[in-house]
Design a protein around this nucleic acid. Structure first.
Length: 257
DNA sequence: ATGTCTGGTCCCACCAGA
């Protein structure tokens, strides 16, 4: 079973790129973030034409997440629990082919410090609480998406330039490590313990051409799923396509059981 | 500080967010 995550940065503007990648990479499940489209503007027909079912949580202008799957999708949770007042579309959970798939778009949090950073840390605290419940489930679980966190210095092209950024501040890294300490396996880091791997290159200053990237899109596997991890990688070349997202798709393969 | 993109509003050029 091949599971992918891809921050598309606007599903309307990136639809040709998304469809091309889906055909080429053919994941069984794809978690998408930053749809930047209201609920009624999701391009369901084009996605169904490639053989996928889909659930999505849209939002006007910003955010928005979706789960596409070649298997049946049984939606479990819509919206991150823990704050009734949080209306941002950043979290979906679904049971697919015996695996609980959680798709998230963690807040960026810049500028930091400030209210956006406070929102990020609050969201992170709720995620840690939700993840604790998920980890102990009897079923295999993966939490994947755009975490907006570089976990270690190996995950940033120039760590010293990012120490005050919301994606790399000590509080942010501490929250990610608190999450990992529940027992989760960072799948890509597990497969490539020492390699420099990036999943995002910003649009400024030819970042992709210079390989000035960040690793911020992750797969966390619980104890029931981690032993089934067989492969994974980044579809880096997709970042080089015309009209592409600033993220590249990332994927893992897990064995049947 | 800068840089590049998208979507949205309000008009034909800006702004916010990332």
């Amino acid at each position: 079973m091949k599971i992918a995550t891809y921050n598309v940065n606007g599903i309307s503007a990136r639809l040709p790129v998304l469809l091309r990648w889906l055909e080429e990479s053919a994941p069984d499940v794809a978690c998408l973030q930053e749809l930047k489209a209201p609920q009624e503007r999701f391009p369901l027909e084009a996605i169904e034409a490639l053989g996928y079912k889909a659930i999505w949580h849209g939002q006007k202008s910003w955010n928005g997440v979706a789960i596409l799957s070649k298997y049946e999708i049984e939606e479990v949770t819509r919206g991150l629990p823990g704050d009734e007042e949080d209306l941002q579309s950043r979290y979906l959970e679904a049971m697919i082919n015996g695996v609980l798939i959680c798709c998230l778009y963690l807040p960026n949090g810049n500028p930091a410090p400030g209210p956006k950073f406070d929102y990020k840390l609050g969201w992170f605290a709720r995620l840690i609480s939700q993840a604790k419940t998920l980890y102990d489930k009897e079923v295999p679980v993966v939490i994947t998406g755009d975490y907006n966190v570089m976990p270690t210095e190996l995950d940033v092209y120039k760590p010293e330039r990012w120490v005050d950024d919301a994606l790399f501040r000590p509080e942010t890294r501490a929250a990610f490590h608190e999450l990992l300490a529940q027992g989760w396996t960072d799948a890509i880091r597990k497969l490539y313990p020492d390699q420099v791997i990036y999943t995002f290159w910003d649009y400024f200053r030819n970042a992709y051409g210079r390989d000035a990237g960040l690793r911020i899109d992750h797969f966390l596997l619980n104890g029931r799923l981690a032993p089934r991890l067989i492969n994974g990688g980044v579809d880096k070349h997709v970042r080089g396509w015309e009209k592409t997202s600033d993220h590249a798709p990332v994927w893992i393969e897990i064995s049947k059981d």
